[in-house]
Amino acid sequence: MEENNYTEQKVILFLTETKEAIFLAPKAFASGGEGSLFHILSPEKYSDRVAKIYHPHKRTAEKLAKLDFLINDPLRRGKEGITPSFIWPEAILQNEKGEQIGLIMPKAQGKKLELLCLPQLPRKIDAAWKRLAFDQADSLKFRLKIAFNLVNALRYLQRRKKYVLVDLKAENILVQPDGRISIVDVDSIQISDGDQFFKAAVATPEYSAPEYYLEPKIERFEASWDNFALAVILYKLFLGIHPFAASAKGEYESCVSLHEKIEAGLYVHHPKAKEWLNFLPPPIKNMRSFRRGCKICLHKLL
C-alpha cells in the first residue's frame, strides 16, 4: 500500500549502478546552494540514508566525476548504527531518463555546532544540551570531547593527503550531546590526487586564512587552510566568540567585518593587539581562566 502511494507521488529515482528504485518524500527537508535533501521512504534498508538532489545548473560533468571519485574512495565506516564523522557520498541517483541528478549518503544526526559557538544556549533547548552551557560545571569536559572528535576526524582526512575541505565551518558540523560529530557538505571538498584535481565549491570569509586575501585566486588549497578554520571553530567552541571579534582603532578603525580583521591580521591575542584594538568582548578577556580550566579538565580526563 505504501509503495503504491510513493508511486502516485512520482518521487522515484534509481541507483545508477544497480537500477534499484528509490522512493523519496514529496518535499525536501532542507535546501542549500547546491541542492535539496530528501528523506528516503523506501526501500526500508535505506531509512538511515538521505538523498541529495542537485539544482539543475549544478549537475555538471565535473560534479559527477567528483562524486564518482569520492564514492570509489570511501573513508572508514563508523560502527553499525553510528553516524560516521564524514557524511560521505555512497551512490549516485538518476531519474527515469537516465540523467544523474543526485546521490545517497548517510543521514546526519544532531544540531549544528554553531549552536555551541555562541555565548549562551537558547532558552528552549532539550535538557541533554543544557549541560553544555558555559555556566555548567562539566561544560568544558564535554566541549573538549567534541573538540577531540573534530580534530581526530580532520587528522584522519589529512592523512589521505588528497583532500582539503576548504569550507570547514561550524555550520557544516553536526554534533550530538554525547560529543559525536558529523561533517557535512563533503561533496564540495577539494580533491588532488595525481593528475586528478577537483576544486572546492566555496570558502566562507570568516573561516578563511589571511593568505586568501593576499592571493584571492588561490588555485589549490593546502591542509593548513583547514587548520586555520579548525582553530577558529575551536576558539568559538571554547569561548563562544570569534577570535577576531573586537573593536579596532586608529588606522584599522574602518575594519568592521570579521573577514576585514582577518585580512588585516587583527588577532586579539597578538602581542601588539593593544596598539590596534579598542575594545575586547568579555569572553575574550576570559582566555586566562579558560586556559586554567582546560589544564585541570585535561588532567582529569587523562
Rank of each mutant, 00 (worst) to 15 (best):
L266R: 02
A137M: 07
S257V: 12
V232D: 14
A127F: 03
L13S: 13
W276Y: 15
F86A: 01
K111A: 00
N278Y: 10
L154T: 04
G98A: 02
E251I: 15
I82K: 11
L67M: 12
K261F: 05
G81Q: 06
V184S: 10
I284T: 09
A108I: 00
Q196W: 02
N149A: 11
L165R: 11
F228H: 14
H55A: 11
A203N: 12
N152R: 14
S224T: 14
R155D: 14
R180I: 00
D138T: 11
A137S: 10
L298P: 03
N278K: 14
P119Q: 10
E2L: 04
H39R: 15
F148I: 05
A91D: 15
P106V: 03
N149Q: 15
F198D: 11
P210E: 08
K141Y: 04
W225V: 09
V175T: 05
L298C: 09
V256L: 03
A153C: 07
L258P: 15
L266G: 09
G78A: 11
L157R: 06
A203D: 12
K199T: 13
F244Q: 07
E90F: 00
S36H: 09
E260R: 13
I125S: 05
P119Y: 01
L15Q: 13
A273W: 06
P74H: 04
E8Y: 02
A51V: 03
K63L: 08
F197L: 08
E3S: 15
K112T: 14
A229Q: 00
C297H: 01
K79Q: 14
A128H: 02
E211I: 01
L150P: 09
S254E: 11
V175E: 03
L70K: 11
P74I: 01
Y252P: 07
Q158H: 15
N172G: 02
A21R: 12
D73G: 12
G33A: 04
V268I: 08
V11Y: 09
E260S: 15
S47K: 06
N5C: 06
S36M: 01
K141N: 04
H299W: 10
